[in-house]
């Protein structure tokens, strides 16, 4: 049972974060473009607001929204949507900030040597932004592992299941099993991510 819950939990987390990375990085890069300052402000503002909505309330809102569109209101789909919404903020924000804060001298030198906008993005800006984007990703994963627990309330499965059951039936043992497992999982994944972070950071940027 515990193995199954854990695997479910990891699955929800990684599907949500996987989609959030693609969305977050793409959107983050897009809004750093020239003349997109207003869009950037709006997007980042909306994303911040999203973070302030309590997860339980968001699940509730999603049920109404998905219901009105004739989609399933409980289970995997609403859980994933809510988790993507939460996970993309740290990724989006870090991508945006990291690219905006690339030393202007490097951009000027790159342009002056004849790098096109696209080459500048892929050869200079993104590699330099990798450490910060990775920090955002790590943040997003840990956050998602925590929130995915609550998603058990709307029937997504995962390590929230024993906790919910324990609460309903006054079974302290189930609550503890679920809670401790989530905590351990969070720590483990965080440790792995910190390794990965160092590994994907370009060599010249690593702290010696």
């Amino acid at each position: 049972m515990l193995v199954e819950w854990t695997l479910d939990h990891l699955q929800i987390t990684f599907v949500a974060v996987g989609i959030a990375v693609i969305l977050g990085v793409a959107l983050g890069v897009y809004i750093t473009g020239k003349g997109k300052e207003h869009i950037a402000d709006t997007v980042l503002y909306l994303a911040e607001i999203m973070m302030t909505i309590p997860s339980l309330a968001l699940f509730g809102l999603l049920m109404v929204l998905l219901g009105s569109m004739g989609l399933k209101t409980i289970g995997f789909l609403p859980a994933i949507i809510a988790l993507i919404a939460y996970a993309q903020l740290p990724i989006l924000r870090n991508t945006y900030t990291a690219i905006r804060e690339v030393d202007p001298a490097m951009i000027e030198a790159g342009k002056g040597m004849g790098l096109s906008e696209r080459q500048l993005l892929f050869k200079v800006k993104l590699p330099l932004a990798v450490p910060v984007i990775m920090a955002g990703l790590r943040n997003a994963i840990v956050l998602t592992i925590a929130i995915a627990t609550i998603a058990a309330l709307i029937g997504s499965g995962g390590l929230g299941v024993p906790i919910v059951r324990g609460l309903r039936n006054a079974r302290m043992d189930l609550i503890i099993v679920g809670g401790v497992s989530v905590a351990i999982l969070g720590l483990l994944v965080d440790g792995l991510m910190s390794r990965l972070e160092r590994w994907v950071t370009p060599k010249g940027l690593r702290r010696r």
Binding site: D103, A105, G204
Partner: peptide, 17 residues
């Protein structure tokens, strides 16, 4: 044009990676 003209600036802007 720019690839045919060398460019060096005060802040250098070497790519650290």
């Amino acid at each position: 044009l720019r690839r045919n003209i060398g460019y060096a600036i005060q802040d250098i802007g070497l790519f650290p990676h």
